[in-house]
């Protein structure tokens, strides 16, 4: 088999590459890091300190690479669109598997806790690890739990698409307002004082944008999950 030989070759070369990576990383861990590698991070932190955001990763994702993040969200939207198109078979044969009483009760109890955790991860994205993408996926996993446990539960298409559209439009509007006020797409036009660093309200537009990203990612992922789940129930 040609395919089998190809897979074997790729596996062995992958094994070799990962062994090389392991040796390199262990080498770096055992000896000291080269000076140039160390200085790159310091330079980034120096620029980061001008924005008053405690989490450097957030600054890179939302501020320095804000336009790329917009593109990433568009890619996710296209993926959700593709799944909706591929699975749009209109057969009404619905066979239900009733889930147990324990699962139903516990998922009702767990759903608000998971939603709360997702919103926490979104809102504190500029202070601690986490942010819009992670928080959005956590919110989507809460909806996944509810969709699996309750057969008659269904997300409303119009509400989800309203949330998604509003989030996407407000991302672009905030970017354009930055362009208007500071001559810079996604310029940080809300006052952000360096002394506020580490507070919940700090960093100007960066937490706002991360919350918007979270809403958009959450609604898109919930829609993907619901499309796959409900369509695969229909025969």
């Amino acid at each position: 088999m040609n395919l089998k030989r190809d897979v074997a070759v790729q596996t062995y070369s992958g094994l070799g590459l990962s062994a090389l990576l392991a040796i390199t990383i262990l080498n770096i861990m055992l000896h000291n890091m080269p000076q140039s590698v160390k200085r790159a991070g310091e330079k980034l932190l120096e620029i980061n300190s001008q924005d008053g955001v405690a989490n450097a990763v957030t600054t890179v994702v939302v501020y320095f690479r804000g336009f790329d993040t917009l593109g990433e969200i568009a890619v996710l939207f296209i993926a959700s669109l593709g799944i909706g198109l591929v699975l749009s078979s209109h057969s009404e044969h619905h066979h239900k598997v009733e889930s147990s009483f324990i699962l139903k009760t516990a998922s009702k109890l767990l759903f608000p806790i998971i939603i709360l955790f997702g919103i926490y991860v979104m809102v504190y994205g500029h202070l601690s690890p986490g942010g819009g993408f992670q928080g959005g996926v956590i919110v989507a996993s809460a909806f996944l739990l509810l969709l699996i446990s309750h057969q008659d539960f269904e997300l409303s298409h119009s509400v989800i698409s309203a949330f998604e559209t509003l989030a996407g439009v407000s991302y672009v509007i905030i970017g354009l307002m930055g362009l208007w006020i500071l001559d810079n797409f996604l310029g940080n036009f809300i006052p952000h004082d360096i002394s506020q660093m580490g507070m919940l309200v700090s960093g100007g537009i960066i937490p706002l944008i991360y919350i918007i990203v979270g809403i958009k990612v959450g609604s898109e992922m919930s829609m993907i999950v619901q499309n796959l789940l409900k369509r695969s129930d229909n025969e």
Binding site: S100, I102, L103, A106, L109, L110
Partner: peptide, 16 residues
């Protein structure tokens, strides 16, 4: 508290 809630639930669902 979260682990006390989820761990018995998941095992009961798998067993069922």
């Amino acid at each position: 508290a979260f682990i006390l809630l989820t761990n018995p639930l998941s095992s009961s669902v798998i067993a069922r």
